[in-house]
Amino acid sequence: MAATATLPRTAPAPARRKGFDWGQLRTYVSAAVILIWCLIPAYWMIVTAFRDTAFTFDSTFWPTHVTWDNFATVFDESLGNHFGRNLINSLIVAGATTAVALIVGVFAAYALARLNFRFKFAVMGFILGASMFPGVALVTPLFQLFTNIGWMGSYQAMIIPDISFTLPLTVYTLTSFFREMPWELEESARIDGCTQGQAFRKIILPLAAPATFTTAILAFIGAWNEFLIASQLSSDATRPVTVAIAYFAGAQPHQEPYTAVMAAGTIVTIPLVILVLVFQRKIVAGLTAGAVK
């Protein structure tokens, strides 16, 4: 720690003497280490996804024995893999969860960010506490309840418990976004002759849209990545991708289909990674919203 604990967030300290800037070099080396640590395992997944099954454990760094076979295995119904259906299931569950959380949560976030009322602290505490709630504490009672009312393995059996963590996350993130918005602008627009509707449509909506969209992405990723609840409450027909990947079947029975699993992982991950990289700044703001300030 000591060696790296120089000034955070300052411009490269102007080199005291003319000559080589060792501090800057150290920064670049550290940055390279971070890049390697974060990206190489993901890179390894992709390289393996394109590798012929016979060369699963080839340790060449760059792609060798390149093939699309693994992706075919992933969607091969004759092996018992229904990855297409799993993808649709994940979309349905994560999409519905996000929609409900957003539609309901946006009002609560507005109230928490903009209005003064008693018990605000308590409400926020309850919502935060809810977001930290352990999923296992829901699975047991819901397992019995859904078995009794015949919902076991249905989409709602996953959507309902998923709301328990996406809704608090949505409210929490949106609240801190809303608190940062320049709401005075709305009043100014009214003074300048906008109607209430116009002020909302032309000023507030464009300001709130990016925040809402970012929150939707965070909620969607959370629900898309959910495993525990889905592993217990889904059926063959509604199984989402995370559970499917955990119980994947390969071409050879009784043999872990590493390459096919890596291919499946790549398919699931690439859209998320693209989404995250495109909206990088907003997502970081959303992730850290509320934790500081």
């Binding site: 000034l7 940055a31 997944m45």
Partner: peptide, 27 residues
């Protein structure tokens, strides 16, 4: 710190975060 390529590093750290835990486990 400010250095060239900082935004690339900030983007890269989001990659492990975005990968589903189930996929991370298999990887």
């Amino acid at each position: 710190r400010s250095f060239r390529g900082r935004s690339a590093v900030r983007a890269a750290v989001l990659v492990p975060w975005a990968i589903p835990t189930a996929v991370t486990a298999k990887l």
